[in-house]
Design a protein around this nucleic acid. Sequence first.
DNA 1: GAAATAAATGGAATTATTCTAATCTACTCC
DNA 2: GGAGTAGATTAGAATAATTCCATTTATTTC
Lengths: 147, 147
Amino acid sequence: MKTSLPEPERNRLKHALKSRNLRPTRQRTCVYGVILEKRDHPTADDIHLRVREKLPSISLATIYNCLDTLVECELVKQVHLDRAPTRFCPNRTPHAHFHCRDTGQVYDVSLDDKRLSAIEQFLPDGFTADTIELSFLGRGPETITVS
Amino acid sequence: MKTSLPEPERNRLKHALKSRNLRPTRQRTCVYGVILEKRDHPTADDIHLRVREKLPSISLATIYNCLDTLVECELVKQVHLDRAPTRFCPNRTPHAHFHCRDTGQVYDVSLDDKRLSAIEQFLPDGFTADTIELSFLGRGPETITVS
DNA sequence: GAAATAAATGGAATTATTCTAATCTACTCC
DNA sequence: GGAGTAGATTAGAATAATTCCATTTATTTC
Ligand SMILES: [Mn+2]
Ligand SMILES: [Mn+2]
Ligand SMILES: [Zn+2]
Ligand SMILES: [Zn+2]
C-alpha cells in the first residue's frame, strides 16, 4: 500500500497550498488523492466514504473544509446540477458537464478557447465573468431504449 | 387590492395545470403571482415570505410543492448557482444567468436560436440534451470600484 | 524551548429540501 | 343532491446538505 497520491500531483498540491500559506495535511492530501483516483464527480459524502478507508476518523466537515481549500487553490472545481448535492471535479481544463437522465453519470465535455470565447460573447457590454458553468441534462449514448 | 395575477397569466396557469389534471389552487396562483411580480430570481424562502403576506398560514413545504408543479408545467425555471439555495425564474424564453459577485444580483442573458444551437454543437455524437444551464459569475456594470 | 500566532479539525448547529400522513376536492353512483 | 371514493393537495415532521465555531495542532518568534 503506497502513498496514494502520485508525485506530480503531490507537488502541485504542495505548491498551490504553500503559495497561500496553507499546509499539506494528511487530510488534504488524502482528499485530493481520492478525487484524482476515480473521476466520477463524487459528492462530499461519496468522498467522505472513500477517504474514511484511509483515515477512519475524519469527519464530513473536514471533507468540506478540504474541498473548499482545493477549490480555492484551483485544483478542483465544483459542479452544481439540479437540487442535488454539489459534486467535485479535478479536471482543470475548461469544460462543461453532461448529466445523463438515465444513468445519473456525469461526463466532461471539453471547451476549447474558440468555444469559450463564443460563450463570452453572449455577455452584454459592461459585464465580465471570471467563471462560466455550462451543463447539459439529457441522455447519453450508452442508454438502451426498450420499446 | 385586486386579484394579483393578471388575466393572461392566470389563463396560462389554468391551462397548463388542467392539461396535467392539476388544480389552480389559491396557493399555486399566489406563488405564481409573486414570482411574476418581482423578477429577481427569488429563493423558495424569499417566495415564502412574500406569499405569506397574502396567505399567512402557508408553509414552506407548500411553496416547494407549488414551485415544483410550476416547473413541471414549464412556467418557471430553476436556477442553480454555487452552493446557494435554488432560485426560481418565470422567464420562459431560453436564457442564461449572470450572477454579480459584488451585488449578488442575478440577471437574465438572452440566448437566441443561433446561440443555443452553437452550444448544442459542443455535445459529442450520441449525446442529446433537453435542458441546458449556462451561468456566469463575475461583475456587472453597475459596480462602483473604489480605488 | 516557551509563548505567541496562525491554521486545521470536527462536533454541533443551521439551513435546504423531501417525505408522508392527514385533509380536502371533485367526480360517480345511487 | 347526498354518500362514497379516488385522486390531489397541504403542511408538520423528518432528513440531508452545508456551515459555524470552540478546541486542538502546528509554526514562528524570541
Ligand atoms: Mn445547488
Ligand atoms: Mn443544498
Ligand atoms: Zn468535470
Ligand atoms: Zn432567469
